[in-house]
Nucleic acid binder design. Structure first.
Length: 261
DNA sequence: AATGCCTGCAACCGCCCCGAA
DNA sequence: TTTCGGGGCGGTTGCAGGCAT
């Protein structure tokens, strides 16, 4: 048995929003707010739209300070950096990334990633992963990514230079190495395996998986993704949170209990 | 000039989570 | 404690415009 629809689909308008509808919705929200109920909002506002559609339209286009138009190189870099750090399997990752880009919405980031950045990112990083067996190219790549965080950069470079680092395998729950079928960037290994947050035997080699796990463990996703949506002042970046986690909790295995300080 | 393909984007769909009753 | 409904999210679709043939 399916879930009851949120509105009468036969009695609501669908498709692109007209300027008039935008004006009505914007005017109503600016004067009355959502009233805590998006489903009832279109009826109150006099719109023949689904409540969810109204919510989406407001959040993505009508909200104040929304930045429309193309993404800048800087924004692209931030998205790629965060992707490389937390991976796409992190819950709410579109929102997490959007929260780091003032004026951008998760839908925006998602579309931009799916249509442009994914190809670019994977193409660039596949070539990084296959270009050599040493650390030089990776070190350079990571230096670029983390140029704003010298502490993190040095830790990452150290980790990648570690003899424990194995780009040919990921690790399952029993720490059994699983061959990687094709070259993937090292930054993606921890989460693109889709298998585990349990780090490999080396503490250094697990830097990314631990960082991401700890971030998730201590609910920093909420902290970054939601709390800071309310205020963009003094927004610490996710990157800094990852670094904080590393510095605060070290490289302890995610299977052991680690209490926040 | 016409046609087909590709790309980017707005919007919808359906599932999951969480809080209220 | 359970049920229900709204909000939030990622995935997907459909369309319009640009480009190549």
């Amino acid at each position: 048995m399916g879930r009851a629809p949120c509105c009468d689909k036969s009695n609501v308008k669908r498709g692109p929003w007209s300027p008039d509808e935008d004006a009505i919705l914007k005017n109503y929200l600016e004067n009355h707010g959502t009233g805590g109920n998006w489903i009832a909002l279109p009826r109150k506002a006099g719109l023949r739209r689904c409540g969810k559609s109204c919510r989406l339209r407001w959040l993505n286009y009508l909200r104040p300070h929304i930045k429309l138009g193309g993404f800048t190189e800087e924004e692209d870099k931030i998205i790629c950096t965060l992707y490389g750090t937390i991976g796409s399997r992190q819950d709410n990752w579109w929102s997490l990334i959007a929260a780091q880009l003032p004026g951008r919405t998760d839908n925006d980031v998602k579309n931009h990633w799916n249509t442009k950045l994914k190809k670019k990112f994977l193409a660039e990083n596949t070539s990084v992963g296959t270009s050599n067996n040493g650390a030089t190219s990776n070190t350079s790549y990571i230096s670029d990514l983390f140029s704003t965080s010298t502490d993190l950069q040095s830790q990452v470079v150290e980790a990648f230079d570690s003899p424990w680092f194995d780009s040919n395998h990921v690790y399952d729950l029993e720490q059994t190495p699983i061959p990687v079928p094709f070259p993937i960037p090292r930054e993606l290994e921890a989460f693109d395996s889709g298998i585990s947050c349990i780090p490999p035997p080396s503490k250094e080699a697990s830097i990314f998986s631990n960082a991401a796990c700890l971030t998730k463990q201590h609910n920093h996703t909420q902290r970054v993704g939601y709390d800071h949506l309310e205020s963009h002042e003094d927004d610490p970046t996710l990157l800094q949170f990852v670094l904080e986690d590393l510095l605060n909790y070290g490289f302890a295995s995610s299977s052991s209990q680690v209490d926040p300080p």
